[in-house]
Design a protein around this nucleic acid. Sequence first.
DNA 1: CGATAATATTTCAATATCAAATGTTTTGAT
DNA 2: ATCAAAACATTTGATATTGAAATATTATCG
Lengths: 150, 150
Amino acid sequence: MPTHYKGNSEEIRALNTYIKLTRAADSFQSRLNSHKTQGELSPTQFGVLEALYHLGTMSQGEISAKVLKSSGNITLVIDNLEKPGLVRRMRDEHDRRMVQVVLTQQGRELIEELLPGHVQAIAEEMCALEPHEQEELGRLCRKLGTYQSS
Amino acid sequence: MPTHYKGNSEEIRALNTYIKLTRAADSFQSRLNSHKTQGELSPTQFGVLEALYHLGTMSQGEISAKVLKSSGNITLVIDNLEKPGLVRRMRDEHDRRMVQVVLTQQGRELIEELLPGHVQAIAEEMCALEPHEQEELGRLCRKLGTYQSS
DNA sequence: CGATAATATTTCAATATCAAATGTTTTGAT
DNA sequence: ATCAAAACATTTGATATTGAAATATTATCG
């Protein structure tokens, strides 16, 4: 389903690539969600818990940068993770502007319980591509994702 | 920034590809938004207007499928496009369950005004990749995006 | 013909999301 | 040392988003 836009060939190529990239990411995410491997957690909550699990205690600002969401959003997400006791807020001793967020034992157990199924679901959906295609897709995405224009 | 997950090599490859794909799509979208080429429109509103412009009048269900959002969401988005008179709802005569959404003259003029700058911004950000890389990324995304598992 | 199934939209509750404004705390320049 | 600027988190207000349940219409089939 290519674009109908009438522009020069460079624009048309870029637009078609953009559309396919967006649709691939969206549909992959939606297929992944249908596996129900994230328990009661929202995608962002899951991402935050996963980041804390793999990278250890972080400030909210670091979490924000890691999961690519606004700081205001992270405040709310941490609120909602704190309620059921999955994480705990701790004011930083050395720099009292910051709040360090630590994974509780409950949070750790939950993410350890969910992660294997989640990774397996990703692997299943990624079967659409051969191993070398996955590598190439990753390389191109990485190149595109880290580009700094202007 | 590879994963720290300890799984088999197939899982690790899939997970890394997934992370890169997601981050590329997210960061591309956020860079694109910073160009402010969508006027007052939210990304979804823009997408709906664009779809109506290129594909013509559609029912809400068709729009939902086209822009990959839930039907409940589309109801709200159409509400918000109808308020400033960019689209108009028309109950389908032959099947009164459906609502056809038509682009108004105002909506058409708005999207025609915004589209060139938007496409140009996409082309600029896509410069991170060589033409043949864009083609390859598009091919892989398409293959992944249309995959039916299970 | 009429009950039931299928389809389309809407409503609802909960969370997500951002940008802008606000309040603390820290840093850096003089 | 002081004070302006920067950095960080939170709040606020608006819209987006989803999934599930409710509603309305149409299609199917015994």
